[in-house]
Every structure is written in C-alpha cells, then in structure tokens.
Nucleic acid binder design. Structure first.
Length: 417
RNA sequence: GUGGGUGUAGUUCAAUGGCAGAGCACCGGAUUGUGGUUCCGGGCGUUGUGGGUUCGAGUCCCAUCAUCCACCCCA
C-alpha cells in the first residue's frame, strides 16, 4: 500500500521553501509599514461561524466546506476563509470594546472541497488584511493600497484593479427588486441556475456565462444607480482617494463577492495571464458582519490574497525568487587526522553563522573537490597533513581558483565579513 | 458536481499489438594534494492502479486514482 497526498494538496519542498518565505516576509514588511499586526487563529472553527457569516446559500457553505464532528458530536469546519475567524477573535477578545479599531493581518492555510485545477487547490494559502472599526472611505483605499504596494514591491506589473460598490443592505434590497423586475419577463427562458438565482441572489444573474442568459443582460439596471446618498458618496470618496494615491482601477459593476457579508466597496485584483483562475486577491467592506457575529455594530474592510496564484504570477513575469541556499564554504579533509581536526573548524565556522558544508563519506581528495564544486560553494577549505602541521588551512576561491593559507582564527574572521 | 485531454526511469521524452529505450541528472572510475571540460562504466522501471480482449498489451477496451484545461466558483 502506497500512501498518496490528498487530492488538491501539495508539499512545499525544500527547493521551494525559500520562495514562500520570501513572499511571506515581503507581505509582513508591507503590512507592518501600514501599521498592521499579525493575528493567528485556529484552522478549524465551529461550522456555524462560517454558515452564518458567509451565508447559507453561498457555494462555500453549500458544497465546499470540510465539515467534521469531534468525539463529543460538535460540528466543526476547516476554515474556508479568513475573515470570519478574525472577526470571531476580535469579538471574543473584546477588541470591540477597547477603542474598537484594529489593524490586523493574517496568513495561513484555507480549505475548500473544490475540484482542483491550475491555481485552485483544496488546501491553499492565503494572506489577508482586516481593518476593523471605521467606515471612513480612506481605509477602503488604504487596504487596497496595501495590496498594491505588496504587488509592486514584488515587481508584479500586469495586474488590474477592479472596484465596485454593492451598497448597504437597503441599497442591495432595492437593487435586487429592480433586477427582478428586469428579468421577470424572461424568467421562462433563463437557465435552471439563473431561475434559482432570481429568487436567492438576483445579482448573480449578471455574471451567468450561459449564452442565452447573457442576451438579457443589456439594459439591466446597475447597482451603482441604486446606491442611496450615503453609499454613493462613500464610493465616490473611495475613488477620489485612489485617484489621489495614483492607484489605477476600473469600475466593474459585475463584481459581486461570493460571500454574503460584503457591503459597499468590493474589489478584485486580476492577473489575466493566469487563465481561468485569474483573481489574485479580492475583498471589500463588511460593515454588518461584526454585529452579526455578536459584537458591537462595527464597520470594517479587508481583503484576502492567494499565495499560490501570486507565485504563479511571479513566475509568469519571470521575477527571480530565492532558491535553496548555497554553502559559503565546502570543507575538505584529507586523512584521518584531518577528518578529526576539521570538526572543530566546522563548529567555529557554524557558530559564526557561516554555512559550512562537509561530507565525511567522500573518499579521495579529487572526489571531495568534485563535491565542493557541485555544492556551488563560494570557497573550499582544504585541510591536509601539511596544513595540520602548520596549524593552517587553505582557503580556495572556487570561482577564480586563487588560494591562500590562513590560521583557523583568520579563516573565521575572513569569512564572517 | 459536469465535460474534455494526459499518465512510461529522478526529469524531459521515444517505442506499428511483438525483447521497455535516449538526452539531461545521478552514482563509480581515469597510478593516492586540487574542481569545472573530456573519456569509460552503471538503467536505478510493478509503463499510475485494478480488471478485460489477445498466442502476446506501454500500445486496444472498462473501471479507478491523479493531474491538466474548461464549466461552476473563487484566492
């Protein structure tokens, strides 16, 4: 019986770890520069947290959640997204009662039972930002600016920002009614999915891909025309901030976030080169969620991005990323005495933070030289009988073949620089 | 969940239904203190898995698993 990795999951192997650390470090730095601090929540929560917050009718809850019951019959779910857990932690730790403003970021694995394809996995890694505690439109722009800064720092160029406003609950209700009015005459001609959408989520009618459904889209009302005064103004101000910050965007009224808790600003970052799964990050405002989860009525905005798609985008743009580290030195010892004496030298090098490679199994000097070369180390250290007698080692530069004789103390000093 | 493509060595790929191979990588060596180039030697495989057809299956058929593409959805 051979064991195989579960479908839709993957191992991050040593050869790739440095890439992951790199992008994660950049994200942490960028988030810090905006004053955000990391929060880490469990990877499973009460299933109800997601059912309530994401919406019973959402795909995530309906068919993509990994649910399980524990030994006491409680129902939990592996988290399919990061916002609800962060808000749960915010409320549970009474952060809503002490000042109320929190600038948070997180990163870690999420889980969705979905059919894998390029850029889509069952366990995937997200990073995210949540600003909780203000409805000021500046923060909508700030949160977007964090993601744009992150991508810019990494060097990604071919990315588009699309924004929209879905309004508050009141606006959404008016808009849904208007949409139903528009589609009512064609109800019989719509696909089965759309007839369901007509009842449950009329705005989903807009992005149906079935050709016959598409024909009824022209002339459909736009959400933007159904924003009340406050929401309209809010959206306008967000746009003004983005303009001032020189962040380019297009308004796309079709952007509807998949989770029920979004209000007002919704946005998405798209890298066209990625194919079907081209959304690299998405988010929006969720002013109703905190109260819904049991906290004080508190406005908030955030987004989440996917590391896998980010890495794919970096690859597409041929942006170099760190690989597996190369040794600073490869140490060669010839003869039994040298093989013993070399251990002390290795230890002092490593204590000085120098990456020193050594393999006692390589036999001949020649074989060790070959290994040194293959290791791609910058230097080789050679310790043989002659050097032992003089209490010296040879430090050989493997790229220009120059070499010098040094005492072990001088060696550490030279290499630590 | 739906439709389609693909699965052969570590990897990239060959092999008309007739003895499973090549490049790269890897390992060992070319008279015991100097690597890269070169040369010699080594195939490391349950052809994803399980059935079936056939004298004979990597090749044909069925199932299954994985992966890729699209739908759906989304990061």
């Amino acid at each position: 019986m051979n064991y195989k990795i579960p479908r839709g999951t993957y191992d991050i192997l040593p050869a790739d770890s440095a890439k992951w650390h790199f992008v994660q470090d950049v994200f942490r730095k960028v988030a810090s520069s905006f004053g955000y601090n990391e929060i880490t929540t469990p990877i499973f929560e009460m299933a109800e947290l997601f059912e309530r917050s994401s919406g019973e009718s959402s795909d995530v809850v309906q068919k993509e959640m990994y649910r399980f019951t524990d030994q006491k019959g409680r129902t939990f779910a592996l988290r399919p997204e990061g916002t609800a857990p962060v808000v749960r932690a915010y409320v549970e730790n009474h952060m809503d009662k002490s000042g109320g403003r929190s600038k948070l970021y997180y990163m870690g694995p999420m889980f969705r039972y979905d059919r894998p394809q390029a850029g889509r996995f069952r366990q995937f890694y997200q990073y995210g930002i949540e600003f909780i505690g203000s409805n000021h439109p500046y923060y909508d722009a700030e949160v977007i600016a964090i993601e744009m800064t992150f991508l810019k720092t990494l060097g990604i160029k071919n990315v588009r920002l699309e924004i929209n406003s879905v309004g508050c609950a009141e606006c959404a209700k008016d808009y849904d009614k208007a949409l139903q009015l528009h589609y009512q005459p064609h109800l019989e001609e719509l696909c089965a999915d759309c007839r369901k959408r007509f009842e449950t989520k009329p705005r989903r009618l807009l992005d149906c891909k079935v050709p016959s459904c598409k024909t009824f889209r022209p002339g459909a009302p736009s959400q933007l025309d159904y924003l009340d005064e406050a929401c309209r103004l809010h959206f306008q101000q967000v746009r003004n901030y983005l303009d001032t910050m020189n962040i380019a965007y297009t308004v796309n009224p079709a952007i509807v976030r998949g989770l029920d808790y979004y209000t007002n600003t919704a946005f998405e970052l798209i890298v066209d080169a990625l194919g079907a799964q081209n959304s690299i990050a998405g988010g929006g405002r969720y002013n109703a969620l905190i109260a819904q989860i049991g906290g004080k009525d508190t406005p908030a905005i955030g987004f989440a991005g996917g590391f896998e798609r980010l890495l794919l985008a970096l690859e597409k743009e041929q942006i170099p990323l760190p690989g597996i580290p190369k040794p600073d030195v490869y140490t060669i010892a010839i003869g039994e005495e040298a093989q013993t004496a070399v251990l002390g030298i290795l230890q002092s090098l490593r204590e000085a933070g120098i990456y020193a490679e050594y393999n006692p199994e390589k036999g001949s000097f020649k074989a060790q030289m070959k290994a040194a070369d293959a290791s791609l180390a910058a230097y080789a250290i050679i310790l043989g009988e002659d050097e032992l007698k003089q209490n010296k080692v040879i430090l050989k530069n493997l790229s220009d073949s120059s070499q010098e004789s040094l005492s072990p103390q001088e060696l550490v000093g030279k290499l630590s620089r």
